[in-house]
Nucleic acid binder design. Sequence first.
DNA 1: CTCGTTTCCAACGTTTGCGTTGGAAAGAGG
DNA 2: CCTCTTTCCAACGCAAACGTTGGAAACGAG
Lengths: 195, 195
Amino acid sequence: MAWDTEGTKRRIREAAVSEFARFGPDGTTIERIAGAAGVNKERVYNYFGGKRSLFSTVLRDELAKVARAVPVESFATEDVGDYAGRVYDYHRERPELTRLLRWEGLAFDGEVPDEELPRRYYGYKSAAMSDGQEHGAVTRSIDADHLTFLVLSLAGWWSAVPQVARMLAGPPTEQEHARRRAAVVEAARRLARSP
Amino acid sequence: MAWDTEGTKRRIREAAVSEFARFGPDGTTIERIAGAAGVNKERVYNYFGGKRSLFSTVLRDELAKVARAVPVESFATEDVGDYAGRVYDYHRERPELTRLLRWEGLAFDGEVPDEELPRRYYGYKSAAMSDGQEHGAVTRSIDADHLTFLVLSLAGWWSAVPQVARMLAGPPTEQEHARRRAAVVEAARRLARSP
DNA sequence: CTCGTTTCCAACGTTTGCGTTGGAAAGAGG
DNA sequence: CCTCTTTCCAACGCAAACGTTGGAAACGAG
C-alpha cells in the first residue's frame, strides 16, 4: 500500500474533532484520537505538535465549515428569523463546532491564538446586520455587532445548557425541537423588527 | 483548637466551587481543592465521596444562591428587560454558577442526577412569564417556557463564548460591558413586548 | 538492485491524579 | 486518668496519559 500522508492527517483531524467535541481538551487523550484514526499517537505529535495545537487546528477547520454552511449576505434582503433558524439547525445537526467553541470558551479563554480569520467571519455577519439597518429592515435600537451576537445566542444557548433547556421545556424530542426552532425564529424576528 | 467539621466542609466547598468553575471537572484535581482548602484530600473523599459527587453538590449550592439573588415574582408587574439585566450582572459578578452549568452541560449531559430542585427553580421563572402573558404584559407569540429560556440566553451567551463576543464587539472593558448590558435589556424587552 | 529518505509504530520513562489505608491526635464520657 | 469515638493526614499502590526514541518498513531516484 502506498503512503497516504494526507489521508492520515485527515483521519486524525476527523477523529480529533469528534473526541474533542465530546470530551473537551482535558477529557480527550491523544491515545484515543490516534486509536480512532487507526494510527500511532506519535503521528499526532509529529503532524500536529501536541494536544493544544491540534485543538486549535480542528476548531479553525470547523469554523471555516460553518461559514460556508450558513452563509449570509445582507439582512436587508434576508430574514433574520430564517437565518437564526438555520443556525439552530446547524447546531443541532453538527454539534461539534458549537461544542468546540464552548470548550474553548471555558478552558482557553484569554489565550486564544490567531483570531484573525474567525474575526473576519464574524465581521461579515455584523456587516450584513449593518446593511439591514441601513436599509431600514432591521431596528437601530441595538448596535449591529451586539444584535448579531444576540441572534446567535438565541440559537446557541440550547446546546450550551441542555439540562436547563430540558428542565424548562421538556426532553428534546423531535417535536420539541420543532417547537424550539419556531421559538428561535420568532424571537429573532422580534429582536430585529424594524420600527 | 477544637474540631471544626462544618468549617472544614465549607472551606472544601468554597475551594471546590472556585476550582471546578475555573478548570472544569476534568481539569480539576481533588488534591488542588484540598490544598486550597488547607486540608488533606482524604477529607474530601470522606465528606463528599469523590469528584463527581462534589461537583453536583457545589452546583446545587450555587443554583440555590442564584435563585435567592435574582428573584422574580411575576412579569405582569416586573419588567423583563430589568430582569435580563440583573441576570447579566449576576453572570458577570459571579461567573461561577454559569461556568459550572456549562461545564455540566458539556461534560455530563444526559447523566445529571437529582433534577427535582433545579426544576422547581426554573418552574417559578416560567410561571412568572405565564403570569405576564395572562395579564397582557408579555407577548403570547412564544410559549412561556421557551420565552423564559430565550431571555436567559441573551444574558448567558456572552460568557459562554467570550472569544466570539470579543471578536464581534471588542474587548470587554467596563464601557463595553455597559453597552452589552444595555443591549441585553433592550433585546429582552423587544422579545417580550406585548402586542 | 541499492541507497537515501520518508512514513510509521512499539515500547519506554516520567509524571500526575485517583482513591485507600493505617494510624496519630483531639475531644467526650465515665 | 483511661477508654472510646471522631477527625485528621502522610504515605501508598495503581492506573492513565504525556511526550519521546530507536529502529523497522515502505517508497523512489539513479
